[in-house]
Design a protein around this nucleic acid. Structure first.
Lengths: 178, 178
DNA sequence: CTGTGTGAAGGCTTTCACAGCC
DNA sequence: GGCTGTGAAAGCCTTCACACAG
């Protein structure tokens, strides 16, 4: 399969063909009229746009129930992310959750971030600690935080936060039912 | 604290005061000019809107890494949801994850949904099984699915799907970094 | 003839400005 | 005077219609 149409891509991703074309047009003239998009070219361009050409290191902070599940999740590698290290305030407790790699003490976190030039962190600590840990992350040079705690994080403008609140996601659903 | 201003609520939730007022106005004349919103009244009205006045039962389907973490997550009760039951294709394997309540076999799922009039399901099965399990859920009467598998679920129009793809959430973040 | 790229139109959401009520 | 409710304006995103290239 050499080429693919906006129609096929749209169906696969659940949007309308025009939408997809408009969006792709943002990144240049990617398609060929009458033919569609060259699969390899498109894949490369999007890879660049998303920064997926290299394996991007991410750290996990907080190895409780959810954090431990994330280490075993496996879906991140597929998208080009690698959990470079996991940190917990109590590594011994966290190590009992048979996580596939060693868990370090939070005290080593800042140094690790700086030494390995890590830019992204997954934050899965209890809500009361989320803000203070986020502050540490920011100070250490983290630029993006995927936040799983039900907290509104305050960060400088140059730090991006993406929050996933599982209870709120259920609430969203619930609103539309009956 | 009897009343609260749109400004205070806005700061707490990370939106602008005008935004918040416009949104609340959708549900009627909730505030008092010059005073703000009565906390109790507002809480009751929003509770009704969101259907939070009663504990809404939800079932969990798929008790793997992520599913098990969700059972221990605890944040759902706070929003008025109760995991009424958990199902897995292999309950024995799943039971080893020390989940706080018994896990039933998938074969009992459809009956349970019908008997208990369950309307919402959390779907945390491996991607290859997501669609077929979703089909079963829909047939049994489920109206809302919180989908954690990286799959585009096909469902009838009267069934609402809210998908959370953890890898994509990281990807979103990544796009904004450097 | 097929299927992309794109200006224009349309629709939706946010913000503004201020009238109106406590 | 303080703070909500709301029409109007602005901004943003989606959809349409079609020109144009292969």
């Amino acid at each position: 399969m050499e080429t693919v149409s906006s129609e096929a891509l749209a169906k696969a991703s659940g949007v309308k063909p025009t939408q997809l074309r408009k969006d792709l047009a943002h990144f240049g003239q990617l398609g060929t009229r009458g033919l569609g998009y060259n699969v390899e070219t498109l894949s490369n361009v999007l890879g660049n746009v998303l920064g997926a050409e290299r394996l991007r290191p991410v750290i996990l902070v907080g190895v409780g129930n959810l954090g431990a599940a994330l280490t075993r999740y496996g879906g991140f590698e597929k998208e080009g992310f690698e959990i470079a290290a996991a940190f917990d305030a109590d590594p011994d407790r966290a190590n009992q959750r048979n996580v596939p790699f060693p868990i370090r003490s939070s005290s080593e976190m800042v140094d690790f971030i700086k030494e390995n030039n890590v830019k992204m962190a997954i934050l899965a600590v209890p809500a009361p600690h989320a803000q203070s840990v986020a502050n540490e992350l920011v100070k250490a040079g983290i630029q993006g935080i995927l936040n799983f705690s039900p907290t509104l994080l305050e960060t400088p403008d140059n730090v991006v936060v993406n929050s996933v609140d599982l209870a709120i996601e259920l609430e969203n659903l619930s609103y539309f039912i009956k």
